[in-house]
Design a protein around this nucleic acid. Sequence first.
DNA 1: ACCACACAGCGTACATCGTACGCTCATGAG
DNA 2: CTCATGAGCGTACGATGTACGCTGTGTGGT
Lengths: 227, 227
Amino acid sequence: MVRMATRATSTAEPRPRLSRERVLRAAIAHADAGGLEALTMRTLAEELEVAPMALYRHVANKDDLIDAMIDVVFGEIDLPPAGADWKTAMRRRAISVRDVLSRHRWAIGLMESRRNPGPANLRHHDAVIGRLRAAGFNIEMAAHAYSLLDSYIYGFALTKMNLPFDTSEEVAQVAESMLQPFPVNEYPNLVEFITEHAMKPGYDYGDEFEYGLDLILDGLERDRNAA
Amino acid sequence: MVRMATRATSTAEPRPRLSRERVLRAAIAHADAGGLEALTMRTLAEELEVAPMALYRHVANKDDLIDAMIDVVFGEIDLPPAGADWKTAMRRRAISVRDVLSRHRWAIGLMESRRNPGPANLRHHDAVIGRLRAAGFNIEMAAHAYSLLDSYIYGFALTKMNLPFDTSEEVAQVAESMLQPFPVNEYPNLVEFITEHAMKPGYDYGDEFEYGLDLILDGLERDRNAA
DNA sequence: ACCACACAGCGTACATCGTACGCTCATGAG
DNA sequence: CTCATGAGCGTACGATGTACGCTGTGTGGT
């Protein structure tokens, strides 16, 4: 057989070299599109036009891959801006987290669970704590604030992610199929809530986020001043 | 071979009949002990001294099993008591959710995500909404309150579940192994936070829960009165 | 007391998954 | 040009969910 071109002189597009970067990018895109359970080493390899085992030159195993994916996600979150007052800074960070998580729904529930946090993860936590301390929160209040804010932010993302609808039109369908197996009027408050609120045009559960966020920030401000 | 006793007259303990109840109970115990990923149809069957395929007479498939497990968990949550004022009622429910989730960590993240909610799930939501409405929350405020409370409760459970330690002693170990790959003083605020707060004797992250819960309830009360 | 049947429990088999192990060549340093 | 390195891969194995259809048992009808 004639020796093949060693430097990709032929027209056949030379598949670009694999790299940890490329693997991560493809994995995240895949998970964004189909969820974590759609991400298998085999499908990922196929997408990269590579044999499954080739991936293992760049990630130790699937867990290592996911750890790394999570750290990329952390890297996409805006750190709290340094100039603004603390409430504005925390508000901006919170909204950035929400936005990032809505792009990467599969990451919710994993963000806080990694036993091997990456540098972006640690830098993020460091920056938030630092910002609170600089704003005059003592350590204990900073702990309160961080716990409360992150619980809310991640919890909101978690509950919202799981809502199987986005618009008020979809609500009707989903609600009906959920309630269909049960007797009518078994759950009157739930039904009223759905029909009188969630199904109203323009309803978007996502809008709830800022109400709670501001309530929390106001409460924290009061307590900080009282301390 | 001699015909075996058909009515379990021998001393060999007659394995009790399988039932959906028994399958669910064993599955929950298994998940409580080893997490969801330890729950496989085979190990579950083994625990019940039954062949794997026997389970499928009682659950349609693994997803159906998990749906049912989640509904059992919902059933363990105390509904908001009817007598007390709304804040007390909501507080009691919130703490009950937290307690239940701490018994069933594997359920966190699934509670709000089932597309086929069971009766206990729906009854729970119905009762909470009803209690808020009865306390004078209009529909919109009830939506705010419920969203905020549940986001916080589930978010707290999520972030706490993932913390790989419970006591202040464990913090040191875990923190060191997390930070060990990185240069000293790369994350000064985080280090200060850990050494000056989380490692103090008596520290228990779980104690943060009630601080945030009360802050939220107070904020909701203010807004309800203002409306 | 008998029988027929419904159905609980099961054995076998298969597709899919993560990944251990070690081979093969292409590539870049000398 | 030579040769060591390491990227990419082929094969194979154990785990997992579950489809399919058999078997033997307990039960209700007579």
